[in-house]
Structures are given as C-alpha cells and as structure tokens.
Amino acid sequence: MEQGTVKWFNAEKGFGFIERENGDDVFVHFSAIQGDGFKSLDEGQAVTFDVEEGQRGPQAANVQKA
C-alpha cells in the first residue's frame, strides 16, 4: 500500500485526487473508500491506498484513512 495526502475531494460529485509520496496525483472515486457510512475525504487528510489501472489511467483503490 502507498501513503498519500488528499489534495482535494468533492463530496457532491464523489471524486477527487490524492497526492502520492512521489508527488504525482492519483484519481480517487468515493466507491474506493473503505468503511461504513458516508464516504468522503477531507483536504490534507492522510490516507493509505493501492493503485490500479482504470479506464482513464491510474486510480486509487482500497482507500483507508490513516
């Protein structure tokens, strides 16, 4: 798993971006967030995640709040 920081996340649209430790950004969809209840992330929040190849390039999977 990688570690990163939430760059931004739009809860209304259900997606955002995580900044990886290497400085690259990776797309995150709310469906990739682990846990119960409303799935959202806060700007600046530390997270761990896997990276999978999506239809439009790399995207975060198995996102967990650190």
Score class of each variant (00 low, 15 high):
D36T: 12
D42G: 12
R20V: 08
N62Y: 07
F38M: 07
K7A: 05
K39V: 07
E19P: 01
E53K: 13
D42C: 07
N10Q: 06
W8M: 05
F15Y: 15
G14N: 03
P58K: 11
V26N: 01
D42K: 13
R20E: 02
K39W: 07
D24K: 14
A61S: 12
Q55F: 14
G16R: 00
R20M: 08
D50W: 14
E43I: 13
H29F: 09
F17V: 08
F15T: 03
R20T: 07
I18V: 04
N22L: 11
G57M: 04
A66M: 12
F38I: 10
R56K: 09
E52A: 09
E19I: 14
V6C: 07
D50P: 00
G54Y: 06
K7N: 03
G37C: 07
D24A: 11
V28I: 07
P58S: 09
F9A: 02
Q59R: 09
V51F: 07
Q3Y: 13
V63Y: 00
G57S: 06
E12I: 11
H29E: 03
E12C: 10
D50I: 15
G4D: 01
A46G: 08
A11T: 14
G37P: 06
F49A: 01
A46M: 14
F27L: 04
F49W: 02
E53T: 12
G16N: 00
Q59D: 02
E53C: 09
N10S: 13
V51E: 04
F17K: 05
S40H: 10
R56I: 06
V47G: 00
E43A: 09
K65C: 07
T5Y: 11
K13L: 13
D42E: 15
G16V: 01
K7F: 03
R20D: 05
V51S: 04
Q64T: 09
G14P: 00
G57E: 03
A61T: 14
S40T: 15
R20G: 05
K7H: 05
K39Y: 06
S31I: 05
E52C: 08
F30V: 07
K7R: 11
F30P: 02
E21T: 13
F27E: 02
F9Q: 01
A46P: 12
A46E: 11
E53Y: 13
G37Y: 07
G35A: 12
G37R: 05
E12F: 14
K39Q: 09
T5F: 12
R56A: 10
D25K: 09
G44P: 02
S40W: 11
I18R: 00
E12K: 13
T48R: 11
I33E: 02
F9I: 04
G57H: 05
G54E: 05
S40D: 07
S31Q: 07
V6M: 04
A46C: 09
D50Y: 15
H29W: 04
G23R: 09
Q45W: 09
G44K: 08
E2V: 13
Q45H: 06
G54R: 09
A32Q: 08
F38L: 09
A11I: 11
E53D: 12
D42F: 11
Q34H: 12
A60V: 03
R56H: 11
A60M: 01
G54N: 07
G4R: 00
G35Q: 11
S31R: 10
G57F: 05
V6S: 02
A60R: 00
K39G: 06
Q55E: 13
G4M: 01
V47R: 00
A66V: 15
Q45C: 07
E52N: 09
G16E: 00
G44W: 05
A46V: 13
A61Y: 10
N22T: 14
K7M: 04
N10T: 07
Q45T: 11
F27Q: 02
E53Q: 15
A66G: 14
G16S: 00
Q64E: 08
I18W: 00
A11F: 11
S40Y: 13
V51C: 06
N62D: 04
F27R: 03
R56L: 15
G44N: 07
D42M: 14
A11P: 12
V47A: 02
F38N: 08
E19Y: 14
V28Q: 01
G14H: 04
V26Y: 04
T48V: 11
N10D: 11
Q55V: 14
S31Y: 05
T5C: 08
G16P: 00
G37D: 06
T48N: 08
D25W: 12
G37F: 07
F9R: 01
F15L: 06
G54I: 04
Q34G: 09
D42L: 12
W8Y: 09
F15S: 02
N62L: 05
G14S: 03
W8F: 09
F49K: 00
E21D: 11
K7S: 05
E21A: 14
D50H: 13
V26C: 06
A61K: 14
A66H: 15
G35D: 12
T48K: 10
A11D: 08
P58M: 09
R56V: 06
V28E: 00
G44M: 05
D36G: 10
G37I: 06
N22C: 08
Q3N: 13
S40A: 11
G14A: 03
Q55S: 14
V63I: 05
T48E: 07
E53I: 13
A46Q: 13
E12P: 08
E52L: 13
G37T: 07
G35L: 08
T5R: 15
G37E: 06
G54H: 08
A60P: 01
R56G: 09
T5V: 15
A32S: 10
F27K: 02
V26W: 02
V51G: 02
A11W: 12
A60Q: 00
K13M: 12
F17H: 03
R56Y: 15
R20Y: 07
